[in-house]
């Protein structure tokens, strides 16, 4: 995956020079290790800042919403599925985009590394399958597969579903992944245990809305949590308000969430709010045979009526 950087710069430089696009959206190194940030390259000097490694977890589809210019965008499997969703939802036109596909082997979870480090990490060196974190008087090497983001370890769409260019040949997709073990473990609980489980899960939430801002699906001009007339949800840290927010946020993602993990990654207190969206994802698969963002020509299940739609819950 490390060899991608040169190829990405070559493609980006070529697209900008030929005038095919006005800007290329990719990643540049962040100011601290393991925190790459989005980069909008418009000049040859900008192109030289583009990088690719295992810290490119942010979903770049988030930066395409309602753009008017021609854009080249880097897309991992999940980004490409969110781009498809954006096209379906008329947030960007396919003709505006040159999609530079990046076959992905999973992104590293910075928290998993930080938790195993004895001091603050000041430098991270990456090899093909390992990653070495260094701090003051400390150095430790991890196998990448042991420190992947949880959603990446469950991913079955690592290759981009649509692309105009590819930076490398497709990678092998993971087979036989049990994607819904955590949903089943919650389903096995009693209602009281479930309520307690989510109460504990959401207890650290500070309502910063980082999960919403990082999510490419959350593009409403005014979010329901920010509206005050009418005020749909209380703005306090009372558990019922926090839960209402997370619950409604998840519902807005039903049949649209690609499990890219941007929400969980952005959370400053490490809440796994994917627990909510995973259930909806599984329901969409079981009830409608739907996997998000695989084809721009197919309307999502909550968007169309089919006579065979399940309706046993209506009395």
């Amino acid at each position: 995956m490390l060899s991608y950087t040169e190829k990405i710069r070559e493609i980006a430089g070529r697209l900008l020079q030929s005038g095919a696009v006005e800007m290329v959206i990719g990643f540049r190194a962040g100011t601290v290790p393991m925190m790459n940030e989005p980069h909008f390259a418009k000049t040859p000097a900008d192109v030289q800042k583009l990088v690719w490694d295992s810290h490119c977890g942010i979903n770049l589809a988030n930066y395409l919403t309602d753009r008017k210019e021609k854009i080249g965008v880097l897309a991992k499997g999940c980004d490409s599925r969110n781009i498809v969703t954006h096209i379906i939802e008329n947030k960007i036109k396919r003709e505006q985009l040159v999609i530079i596909g990046v076959p992905c082997k999973g992104m590293v979870d910075k928290r998993k590394i930080a938790m195993k480090a004895e001091t603050e990490i000041t430098e991270v060196i990456e090899a093909e399958t390992t990653i070495t974190a260094k701090g003051h008087g400390f150095s430790k090497t991890f196998e990448k597969k042991d420190v992947l983001q949880h959603n990446c370890s469950l991913c079955i769409h690592r290759n981009p579903v649509i692309h105009d260019e590819m930076v490398a040949p497709p990678v092998v997709e993971q087979q036989g992944v049990d994607r819904y073990a955590d949903v089943r473990s919650i389903a096995a609980m009693t209602p009281e245990q479930r309520w307690k489980y989510f109460e504990d899960l959401l207890a650290p939430c500070i309502r910063c809305y980082a999960c919403r801002n990082a999510c490419p699906l959350c593009y409403c001009p005014t979010c329901f949590v920010d509206e005050s007339r009418p005020q749909w949800v209380g703005k306090s840290l009372d558990p019922s308000d926090v839960r209402t927010f997370h619950f409604l946020r998840a519902y807005h993602c039903a049949g649209r969430c690609t499990d890219c993990g941007a929400c969980e990654r952005a959370c400053p207190v490490g809440i796994n709010m994917r627990t909510f969206t995973k259930k909806l994802e599984q329901d969409c698969l079981d009830l409608f045979g739907w996997e998000v963002g695989l084809d721009p020509e197919v309307r999502p299940p909550l968007d169309v009526y089919r006579p065979q739609d399940p309706n046993d819950f209506i009395k």
């Binding site: 949903v183 209602p191 489980y197 989510f198 619950f247 909510f276 259930k279």
Partner: peptide
């Protein structure tokens, strides 16, 4: 809703 702990029914 029931997944989140609301009583069935």
């Amino acid at each position: 809703m029931e997944h989140m702990g609301i009583e069935p029914g």
